[in-house]
Design a protein around this nucleic acid. Structure first.
Length: 212
DNA sequence: AACTCGGGGCA
DNA sequence: TGCCCAGAGTT
């Protein structure tokens, strides 16, 4: 069992400083969570939340989306990047859910990954947040920050996923996912990270490397 | 492994 | 204005 020497300090730092994670937990159904997560690819939560708030007032279940004309859906979500692809995915997913899964979101990774527009990260978010399954969603931020902090040493997201699940206590997986994303977006950016502002320097391999 | 989708945020 | 991004699919 791997361990991380600064784990308790890290968790306390995030708990004290960063807002309670709510992005993925705010949706009332697994289906809404799935759609919102598909929409979130390469897009900020502000963009996505703005759209989903309106969208889910008009359309709530797979049936509402399955019969939708693509142009109509595109107009609803065109303030989000990649909106043509996403419209297509959402309508296709909705039809598959109706035909194959009785209108419900499937609860296994294998089934989720077969849905168009659903990759490893989206599947893991749905599994973790809607089905309480043991997964650790890894996106580019989680991957970058967990490597910089030495939580993992991984060249692929799948490796990082496994190592994070070994190092982080299970009850903190979803929180840590959001904390790392928040930290990655606001402070520990891919380029020009705000190290001067970051109190995690003592734990950070990236900072050490840049300053020796 | 590289390329594509894409509007909005930010320098 | 130009650069980049809370991914996934295609070639």
């Amino acid at each position: 069992m791997a361990s991380y020497p600064y784990l308790q300090e890290l968790i306390k730092y995030f708990e004290d400083r960063y807002p309670a994670p709510d992005t993925e937990l705010n949706f009332s159904t697994p289906f809404e969570l799935l759609i919102a997560t598909i929409l979130s690819a390469q897009s900020t939560d502000r963009q996505v939340n703005k759209v989903t708030k309106k969208l889910f007032k008009k359309y709530k279940n797979p049936g509402d989306f399955a019969s939708l004309d693509r142009k109509t859906l595109e107009r609803e979500i065109n303030s989000i990047g990649l909106y043509r692809n996403k419209s297509k995915y959402i309508i296709e997913v909705s039809n598959i859910l109706i035909k194959e899964y009785g209108g419900k979101v499937p609860g296994t990774r294998k089934e989720l990954l077969k849905l168009p527009g659903v990759g490893r990260k989206t599947a893991n978010v749905v599994l973790a947040c809607a089905f309480n399954k043991k997964t650790f969603p890894v996106d580019t931020h989680v991957f970058r920050i967990s490597n910089r902090l030495g939580l993992v040493s991984a060249k692929r997201t799948n490796e990082a996923e496994k190592q994070l699940m070994e190092v982080i206590p299970e009850e903190k997986w979803v929180d840590m996912h959001h904390w790392l994303i928040f930290h990655g977006r606001e402070v520990c950016k891919a380029r020009n990270p705000a190290c001067h502002f970051c109190e995690l320097k003592p734990f950070c391999n990236y900072y050490k490397k840049e300053n020796d």
